[in-house]
Design a protein around this nucleic acid. Structure first.
Lengths: 121, 121
DNA sequence: TTAACAATTAAACGATTGTTTAATTGTTAT
DNA sequence: ATAACAATTAAACAATCGTTTAATTGTTAA
């Protein structure tokens, strides 16, 4: 690819484009970040990394309505980050036991720690 | 906090709420993820982690209009993830040399690798 | 001081996202 | 079967976000 301006580093920038992941790759990455781009959803996922709970209790812990909560649970489940099981009238949710889910859990705790160390004890 | 339902794990869930980071903490975390919640912005940040370029060349590399690009550069700069310097008529951007910027760079490459290993050579 | 180029800003528009309200499905106990 | 509770779904609404177009600011060279 020929760039409009040449500042002597064209070799670096132009070669970079060859090595660059496809937009689809970045799109998949951004979809994952989008999942965590909502404070309530991060909080919810963090909770489900630490305990398994039914929707009613989660709604109380999150201080949210159950429809709103269901909505977020839906996304997290569709992405494979969380799993659910029914027990009688209740449905229990918890984080999926996958390498990927674990990685995001740690990223969240890293980010929260870096962003506001005093907020995390 | 008293939960509506008791499944025997109340000690776990109720103690969790005490240890839980504040919503503000999660909000700061989600703001960071929101930054990367757009494919063009992830791609742009990734590029700026690997090279320093002027807006015109970045627009060519990103296949975007310069106003659209400026818009995204603004957010990334406001968050401290990238820095800029003017040289004559041109403004050059690159990733900030901080621990935090470096961490996100690696997270992106990890995520892209996990999400689509074949997309990254 | 103009003219030309680089970059940013502002306003308008369309698309997406999250919450609410109401209706519906699924399960258990009477 | 019916009543009560748990959870999900659907439709409507408000808010946010990204792109476009047009205007503006900043810099250099003629």
């Amino acid at each position: 690819m020929k760039l409009p301006h040449d500042h002597g580093n064209c070799e670096c920038s132009e070669n970079l484009i060859e090595k660059m992941p496809s937009l689809e790759g970045f799109s998949i990455a951004s979809d994952i970040f989008k999942l965590l781009g909502d404070a309530n959803r991060v909080k919810l996922f963090w909770l489900l990394c630490h305990t398994e709970e039914c929707v009613t209790d989660l709604a109380a812990m999150m201080d949210m309505s159950s429809p709103a909560l269901s909505h977020h649970l839906r996304f997290l489940k569709a992405s494979g980050l969380i799993v659910s099981r029914r027990e009688g009238k209740e449905v229990f949710y918890r984080s999926a036991d996958t390498e990927f889910s674990d990685m995001l859990h740690h990223i969240i705790e890293d980010v929260v720690e870096i962003a506001c160390p005093d907020k995390f004890s």
